[in-house]
Design a protein around this nucleic acid. Sequence first.
RNA 1: GGUCCCUUCGUCUAAUGGUUAGGACAGGAGAUUCUCAGUCUCUAAAUAGGGGUUCGAUUCCCCUAGGGACUACCA
Length: 520
Amino acid sequence: MSKSLKIISIMTSALSGCFLLIRRGRMEVRVRYAPSPTGLQHIGGVRTALFNYFFARSSGGKFILRVEDTDRERYSDESLDDLYQTLDWLGVKWDEGPVVGGPYGPYIQSERFELYKKYAEQLVKDGKAYYCYCSPERLEKLRAEQVASKSEYQGYDRHCANLTDEQRAEYERQGIKPVIRLKVPTEGKTTFHDILMGDITRRNRDVSPDPILLKSDGFPTYHLANVIDDHLMGITHIMRAQEWIPSGPLHILLYEAFGWEPPVYCHLPMVMGKDGQKLSKRHGSTSLRDFREKGYLPEAIINYVTLVGWSLDGSTEFFSKEELEKCFRIENIHKAPGVFDYKKLDWFNGYYIRACENSRLEDLVLPYLIKAGYIGSEPGCDELELVKKLVPAAKERMKVLSDIVPLSTFIFVDEPVLDASVYCAKGSDDEKTLSALKHGAEILLSGLKDGKAEEKIEEELVALSTELGVKVNGVFQPLRVAITNSTVSLPLFDSIALLGLDETKKRINRAIGILEAKNE
RNA sequence: GGUCCCUUCGUCUAAUGGUUAGGACAGGAGAUUCUCAGUCUCUAAAUAGGGGUUCGAUUCCCCUAGGGACUACCA
């Protein structure tokens, strides 16, 4: 190419870029989350929703929810409920979509049923698509043969691509319901641009040959419905998981067949399990419902999940939803897939629990205590008072809300430790342990009864330990085990406050009995 | 099998054509006059391999290897 020609070509491409900018630049960003209600919302889907939502917010655009319920076999009402519940729980609000409506509705694909058929038939009229009468059995057999022969050519053999009118009429007479397939060109190549990945090109002969657009039941397949709706709803950016990259060229072909301008693509890195495979149930919980039930806070989920495959600067760890709505940049999305780290999520969750207002935490923890049967389903004043005392003591020991149950069991279930050796701390012995328990109890109970400061009592207990020639824990452990029935527990004074003085006294005396029986 | 995508500590990630390659989780050690937890301090740990381009490459290019996704009348 000569120099001047080159310059001209650069200029024209710059110019067409300008037009694109003018056409698009004025337009606000419109993105969508378009799940199919065939199961519970999971980490991967939620991450996609979040990235779309944050991108929309941070660029002053619109976030649209669209329900892609074209698979009647796998659809369930429960999944749809779960979708709404999950987004609601996360505090992700959609600007347009089901429930709230919007100028491009309806936003549920089954309610747009007629539309897809119309467009598919238009494609047939234009010679871009055709009716196919092949039976599922024939297709199955074809596929089996291709797999067996390890043929380089995999996919539909275009058997119905050039049917005569007579042949078609004959099939129709037999009552066979056709599907509509797209004519994929066999020559040339198709390129689409991805913000993250750059240009991705595929030879047309490698595009899955003649995919079905409209199923025989009249419902569209994903490809058709997705392209039509994205266009009709004015979607500007498609942010979806990288598993969709292979169908990118097919979608471009569809946009071309319709004569439409394709949107900008951004394929999100996938979320993997520890073994590097796509995250699934066998790696642990994946549904948001599970996480919610175990007691993860929405702020922890949001914070951690958006940090898989995205980062601001590599050192900022904590982001609130509101911050992400401001600082999320599409350019900071990573290309490589990321492993979902349950431990790090736990760490975030613990952090957010500790940061949680006590009053809110009381409310959050209540259902777990009720479910455990520790407090009534209609908690009375006494019970609420107890929870009020429990929360600050348990707070920094919790990773998930359900941890409140094991931490508070000693209050509600009294199963004394009968093995005397458990009371004995490292470096102490049976005799000293008994003595520590007896004298410690005296110091403790009389001190508390007289309203002595905890610090003062603690000092006296420490003094007792030096007196007995044991470590500090040599005095505290027998008391704690006696009171909480466990070597692992809340701190001594918190435990007593929760249990009450009478019950404390009762448990200590019982423990003294257990130790005395052994020492004899 | 075919096509496409990816590759910095175990994990999530930062960085630049020139740094002791930074942070966080997890791990290890220690501190905190009660266990556990929390908090604090310290510590170990990475540019997949091989070729180029370059005075210099982890960064740019090529090859190899490894991993992943897709290959449905599912999305």
